[in-house]
């Protein structure tokens, strides 16, 4: 491999950081929100009890958006560090 080592180091640093950010968002919508579901149910959102809404739709919508964002962000990292595949 002729690619220089510093690119690899930078690429992995940024990939790790993206992973931690993604998993923080994931953790929030997977666990934190539902841990407080009882209190959230006191509010309504689109006529739903809010805690119920987050379990039935809110978290799922957040997951889909996060994942498409993640794919884009990782591709940007790959491209800027010179590791993007040609297609």
């Amino acid at each position: 491999m002729s690619t220089d080592t510093s690119n690899r180091v930078e690429h992995w640093q940024r990939t790790k950081r993206l992973m931690f950010i993604t998993l923080t968002i994931w953790f929030f919508f997977s666990f934190v929100v539902h841990w407080f579901a009882n209190s959230l149910n006191a509010f309504t959102f689109l006529d739903f009890p809010f805690g119920f809404y987050m379990a039935a739709q809110g978290s799922e919508i957040a997951f889909v958006i996060t994942l498409f964002w993640f794919v884009k962000a990782q591709h940007t990292i790959d491209r800027e560090c010179g590791f993007a595949e040609e297609d």
Partner: peptide, 21 residues
């Protein structure tokens, strides 16, 4: 009811782990 929605949350959010890890 609400308690069962844990399956719905779990079976979607797992894909974040699949993609990122």
């Amino acid at each position: 009811g609400h308690g069962y929605l844990a399956f719905v949350v779990g079976w979607t959010g797992g894909y974040i782990l699949v993609a990122s890890l």
